[in-house]
């Protein structure tokens, strides 16, 4: 990193790309195939998806910055364990805070908060980016990947909730009815499949299809 000039602006082109790339061309979920475990299991309601993304983004940014700050003192041999400990400690803090201040949400997310620890996005970014980059760039990288992850979660949750229960639960606004009663009276029914786990996979598959059709350079051969 020695060739980087001190006067580089905080939001240089390179730094902006750190945030925007994960939204599309290197999206952690759909392209790098990371962090799917927790991504799909908490998407039945919008509010869970949003809170999960926020929790992951927070852990990702702080973890990235911490590891980046410590990158010159972490012993090579126990690198992975040190990263796991940092992430696990952050996740415990997130979990304890959720339990204390947003008890209802923590009840719904239950074990999935713990699984942030093994969310491959976090370990992947720590290992691939934070260990070799300065803290500001690492923070941006964490933010970008967190948003990229959240984007997929929110899209999946949107389709699952609207077509599965006809509602949209947004934090602060409560449960909004999206599909009016009159539509049900005409014979419309909620799609029960949307509430079951496999539907998240179908939605992500379609998401990938759309994304890769618009960006043909991403197609695998």
């Amino acid at each position: 990193m020695s060739e980087e000039k001190k006067s580089e602006p905080l939001f240089s082109k390179k730094n902006k790309a750190l945030i925007t790339n994960p939204l599309n061309s290197i999206n952690p979920v759909t392209i790098q195939v990371l962090g799917i475990c927790s991504a799909l299991a908490v998407t039945v309601q919008m509010d869970n998806a949003i809170i999960m993304s926020l929790a992951v983004t927070a852990v990702l940014i702080i973890g990235n910055v911490l590891v980046s700050l410590m990158r010159n003192i972490i012993p090579g041999k126990i690198r992975i364990i040190v990263q796991l400990v940092i992430v696990a400690a952050l996740v415990i803090i997130v979990d304890q805070v959720l339990k204390a201040y947003v008890y209802d949400v923590s009840k719904k997310l239950s074990v999935f908060v713990g699984l942030i620890i093994t969310n491959c996005i976090i370990m992947g970014r720590l290992e691939a980016f934070a260990l070799g980059n300065k803290s500001w760039a690492s923070a941006l990288d964490g933010l970008g990947n967190g948003i990229g992850y959240g984007l997929v979660l929110v899209v999946v949750a949107f389709f699952k909730e609207v077509f599965g229960s006809g509602t949209l639960t947004i934090p602060g606004l409560g449960k909004l009815t999206i599909i009016p009663e009159s539509v049900y009276d005409m014979g419309y029914m909620d799609n029960g499949l949307m509430l079951l786990p496999p539907s998240s996979l179908f939605i992500v598959a379609v998401y990938i299809w759309v994304q890769k059709t618009r960006n043909p350079e991403l197609i695998e051969d």
Partner: peptide, 9 residues
Amino acid sequence: PMRGVGMAF
């Protein structure tokens, strides 16, 4: 576009 990961999902 569905080759690989998409199809696996």
